[in-house]
Design a binder for these strands. Structure first.
Lengths: 138, 138
DNA sequence: ATGATTGCAAAAGGTTTGCATGGCA
DNA sequence: TGCCATGCAAACCTTTTGCAATCAT
């Protein structure tokens, strides 16, 4: 039972048709340990499915996001980038020199965010925290 | 001495030419207490400068951002929105139902962010924190 | 079978750019 | 005057969409 199989089953259960193109994309997404954009995902999935069109990639990504199977990130001005939804929430640091993405999380910050919103009568639907960073010299 | 005058002077000092279109835009930006996008700024500035072109607005906004006079925000999927740079840093909550933008800041969170980055050898160049929120019922 | 999904090509939306003209310092 | 900034139109990049053909269930 691979990770892609898990995802596939969950989708089938949700009534989503698993076409060959969606299966190919799911395999790529399940196997990715970075944060590729739609074009990159299309490039990777095309290895197994040369006829796969970019519009199908976009449509599928939207569907998978709606199903909560993947997450979409919109970093500073660049195209949307995707990763599979994990159980653990995390945020991102982006190395402004290299583009490298580092995942991190802070329960303390999340708690403070929740409190700040609550103070003015709001609850958080979702949030976005990105730290654009540079390696310290020395 | 209006706010726009202040901005104008700072720019002149930095060697930026103040054309009529830039002056018109600066007046609009200085007078805005919301977070308008480029098209909206063009609309407002056009009242005083009907010949102002949208490309000039975009070029000017980029220049002003480079000068640190304004800040660009890229909220969830929508066009970039701008506000004048203030002395005090702040972040944003966006009401997902109304689109209303609420400014807030938390020194404690900023401190935690700095610490988290430092722990892995990074320093923060800039950051972005957006809370997408909904009014609590009751 | 039949309704969802695909590929293609075209369109949309936001933003940038080449070029000749015009205007600030 | 010299060079920067402008307006226009066209290009760009990412993403979406209309349509007829195809496929999963």
């Amino acid at each position: 039972m691979t990770k892609a199989d898990d995802l596939t089953q969950a989708l089938r259960d949700a009534g989503v048709r698993i076409t060959r193109q969606r299966a190919a994309l799911l395999t790529v997404i399940a196997g990715a340990d970075d944060h590729p954009d739609a074009v990159e995902l299309h490039r990777r999935a095309s290895k197994d499915m040369p006829s796969l069109s970019l519009s199908t990639v976009y449509r599928t990504l939207t569907a998978l996001e709606d199903q909560g199977v993947i997450q979409r990130h919109q970093f500073d001005g660049t195209p949307s980038r995707f990763e599979k939804a994990e159980d653990d929430h995390h945020d991102h640091m982006i190395d402004v020199d290299t583009g490298e993405v580092i995942e991190f999380c802070s329960d303390r910050i999340e708690q403070l965010q929740t409190e700040l919103a609550a103070e003015i009568g709001y609850e958080i639907v979702h949030h976005r925290m990105e730290l654009y960073v540079r390696k310290k010299d020395g």
